[in-house]
Nucleic acid binder design. Structure first.
Lengths: 150, 150
DNA sequence: TTGATTGCAAAAGCTTTGCAGGGAA
DNA sequence: TTCCCTGCAAAGCTTTTGCAATCAA
């Protein structure tokens, strides 16, 4: 369980468990695969009457990233988003430029690329693959109703 | 030649060629593969006594992205960087977490992934693959002089 | 001439930081 | 009790925008 692991890791590094840290981590657990940004987290907590200041949300997120609970993502919006880092599940993101939905792509053809680079002496740490395009749903729609050119 | 192409495209869309637009595009041509940010461009021009305002640098970069001359990149620094978009040369980026150098990776194993997704109905537009790790140079160095743990 | 483009400064986001008070261990 | 953590407000950065003056076509 994430909360228990966090408690343990905090103790190991002489940090303290606080209600705020638990609340922030829980938000990510309850909104798994939603790619929340700091402001989203703040607003979710605020709407539940759990007031955690924005500064604390930012600081807690940084801590959770550092501890490996969260993975930081960017989708070209000018903000950072985060997702629970389940290390066993390597996946990538397909961003639909029409509906904005983000699909998680589980294919792992990248293993080949990884092997090739490792043969060249590179050491792998982390991938970040984003694919931009049109998702099947929107592609079907635009076949029926093609967008007009400006 | 990029400048001529830009002139032509601007004319087609009833935009105007200006010294500023030419200067900004030239900076990218002269600093190919350096992944400049807007501020870098501004400072390069400033140091050459070509004063182009920051606002214009930003606006011109946006225009060049829209026209397909530049590709926008993010490396988790909180700023956008750009590179000349040579459409024929699909490549990815390996960011060394030690020296910070960005290597361009030319492998195209991603073709497989692309084909697989296209079979599922996704329409491709653009890739953005970043790989974080340690480059061969730094990996060799740290073998000789391993970093101390904190 | 005409309206797109520039420069300046102000504004707008997102994120970080300083500091004093509060709270976990 | 100790000193880590929080909240608040201010500050920091990058990027965007409003507006009058300028300049390309």
């Amino acid at each position: 369980m994430y909360i228990e692991t966090l408690k343990k890791e905090l103790k190991e590094r002489k940090y303290r468990m606080t209600p705020q840290r638990e609340l922030v981590l829980k938000v990510f657990m309850e909104h798994d695969a939603e790619h929340l940004g700091a402001d989203d987290v703040y607003r979710i907590l605020f709407s539940k009457k759990h007031s955690v200041s924005k500064a604390t949300v930012y600081r807690t997120i940084d801590l959770l990233v550092e501890f490996g609970f969260l993975r930081r993502l960017e989708f070209g919006e000018g903000i950072y988003r985060y997702e629970l880092a389940k290390k066993d599940k390597l996946h990538h993101h397909f961003v639909c430029k029409i509906c904005g939905k983000i699909y998680e792509i589980k294919e792992s053809y990248l293993e080949n690329l990884k092997n090739s680079l490792e043969n060249q002496g590179f050491v792998f740490e982390n991938f970040d693959l984003k694919i931009y395009g049109i998702c099947p749903k929107c592609a079907r729609k635009s076949k029926k109703n093609p967008l007009r050119r400006k």
